[in-house]
Amino acid sequence: MSGTNNLESAAAEMMRCACCGIAEGDDIKLKTCTACKSARYCSVKCQKQHRSQHKRECKKRAAELRDELLFKQPESTHSGDCPICCLPMPIGGKYSSMMACCSKIICNGCVHANQIRELEGNLQQKCPFCRHPTPKTAKESEMRMMKRIEVNDSFATFQMGLRRHDEGNHEEAFEYWTKAVELGDVESHYLLSTMYQGGPGVEKDEKKEVYHLEQAAIGGDRGARYNLGCTEAENGNFERAVKHWIIAAQLGDDASIQVLKQCYADGKINKEDFAAALRAYQAAVDATKSPQREAAAKAVATGG
């Protein structure tokens, strides 16, 4: 009963201003503290007046909420599934290709199968997804990508950032990745985090670096998650580091399963946790395999 009473008491408190105690009603609408979600106020004046009392608890609860979000296992990686075969995208960017016409990422298995179909049927080369003719020059490819950017395509915006970065134009790369982040692109968060480490074109900012790294990890970026684990380990927060590595391993990250293997050998994590992470890692890797993808890899290896 005490647990029920505590919940009822907490609910009742949320219906009153944390400063003056006035209850919410038809003529009084309370606004929730955006940081901690655990206090409500009838006015900005009350919120400012209560700040000194609330500040410590607010910071603590905000950190707890952030950790709940940060350590939640993503349903999948940020790369998602191939839009043609609907299997999880293969691990590693070299096993997939971006279509300049529609900004779709296609696994190499589907790209290879489409190429065979075109060769056997003596057909014009077209995108495996949207069936538009493939661009013949780099200039045509960039023009198509710019059209996708104009309609707020997040991935095309991210890709243009990569192009500008490779050209040495770090300022424009930063602008494209910032826009891509606003459009929801996860990998742009990761690349912005690397720029905020103090790279060319951006002033070093540790808070922004960590923020973008965490946002990338929350979105399912394996590399960002692994790096967060390494950072936590370097800072002596080994328990948090292991949490990050386990989540990344469960998404199929090889570097994370290797470091967990060493942790187990050193007696730093128990057998049950390591075994569970290993099973999930293997399941994630196996889910990305298909005969078409194996045929594509073989064709690349043999030059066929």
Rank of each mutant, 00 (worst) to 15 (best):
I246Q: 06
I246L: 08
I247S: 07
I247W: 03
A248Q: 07
A248N: 06
A248W: 02
A248E: 04
Q250P: 02
Q250G: 11
G252F: 02
D253P: 04
D253N: 14
A255Y: 11
A255I: 09
A255F: 13
A255N: 15
I257V: 10
I257L: 03
I257K: 00
I257C: 02
I257G: 00
I257R: 00
I257F: 02
Q258D: 15
Q258N: 15
V259I: 14
V259G: 00
L260Y: 00
L260N: 00
K261I: 03
Q262N: 14
Q262H: 13
Q262E: 15
C263M: 15
C263D: 10
Y264I: 02
Y264E: 09
Y264T: 05
Y264P: 01
A265L: 15
A265H: 14
D266C: 08
D266I: 07
D266R: 11
D266Q: 14
D266K: 14
D266G: 08
G267A: 09
K268A: 06
K268Y: 06
K268L: 12
I269Y: 02
I269G: 02
I269M: 09
N270D: 14
K271S: 14
K271P: 05
K271M: 11
E272K: 11
E272W: 06
E272D: 15
D273C: 06
D273K: 09
F274N: 00
F274D: 00
F274T: 00
F274S: 00
A275N: 14
A275H: 10
A276V: 07
A276T: 09
A276D: 12
A276K: 13
A277H: 02
A277G: 06
L278C: 10
L278D: 10
L278T: 09
R279Q: 13
R279S: 13
A280S: 12
A280E: 10
A280D: 10
Y281H: 12
Y281N: 07
Y281I: 02
Q282E: 10
Q282S: 09
Q282G: 03
Q282F: 02
V285G: 01
V285N: 04
V285C: 07
D286K: 12
D286F: 06
D286V: 05
A287D: 05
A287R: 04
A287V: 01
T288P: 01
T288L: 05
T288M: 03
T288S: 04
S290A: 08
